[in-house]
Simulated assay, not measured.
Amino acid sequence: MTRSRDDGYWRRLIRRLTSDEEQLDADELARRSAASGCRKVGDCASGEKAAVLGRLRSVALCPAATTPTVEAELFDGTEGMTLIWLGRRRIPGIQPGRTLRAWGRISERDGRKVLYNPYYELQTSG
Rank of each mutant, 00 (worst) to 15 (best):
M1S: 14
T2W: 02
R3S: 07
S4N: 07
S4T: 06
R5K: 13
R5Y: 11
G8P: 05
G8R: 12
G8V: 08
Y9K: 15
W10Y: 15
W10K: 15
W10L: 15
W10R: 14
R11T: 15
R12M: 09
R12Y: 11
L13P: 04
I14Y: 07
I14M: 07
I14F: 08
R15K: 15
R15C: 05
R16F: 14
R16M: 14
L17K: 11
T18C: 07
T18L: 11
S19C: 06
S19D: 10
S19Q: 10
D20G: 08
E21R: 11
E22P: 01
E22C: 00
L24M: 15
D25V: 12
A26I: 03
L29I: 08
L29R: 07
L29P: 05
R31Y: 11
R32K: 08
S33T: 09
S33L: 02
A34P: 04
A34C: 05
C38W: 00
R39L: 08
K40M: 02
G42F: 01
G42P: 00
D43K: 03
C44E: 07
C44K: 04
C44A: 14
S46K: 09
S46R: 12
G47E: 01
A50W: 02
G54H: 07
G54W: 06
G54S: 04
R55V: 08
R57N: 10
S58H: 10
V59P: 10
V59H: 12
V59N: 12
V59T: 11
V59F: 12
A60V: 09
L61C: 02
L61H: 06
L61S: 10
L61Q: 05
C62Y: 10
P63C: 02
A64L: 13
A64Y: 07
A65S: 11
A65T: 08
T66P: 00
T67F: 06
T67Y: 04
P68G: 05
P68W: 06
T69M: 14
V70I: 14
V70R: 09
E71A: 13
A72D: 13
E73G: 02
F75S: 00
F75K: 00
D76Q: 01
G77L: 01
G77T: 01
G77F: 01
T78P: 00
T78N: 09
E79V: 05
G80S: 15
M81K: 03
M81N: 04
T82Q: 13
T82H: 07
T82A: 11
L83I: 05
L83M: 03
I84H: 03
W85M: 05
L86H: 07
R90A: 04
R90F: 10
R90L: 06
I91S: 13
P92Y: 11
Q95C: 08
Q95F: 05
G97Y: 10
R98G: 09
T99V: 15
L100E: 11
R101M: 15
W103K: 09
G104N: 08
G104K: 04
R105V: 13
I106Y: 03
I106G: 01
E108D: 06
R109A: 12
G111S: 12
G111L: 08
R112G: 03
K113V: 02
K113Y: 00
V114I: 13
V114F: 06
P118L: 03
Y119L: 14
Y119I: 01
Y119G: 09
Y120T: 08
E121W: 09
L122G: 14
L122W: 10
Q123R: 15
T124P: 13
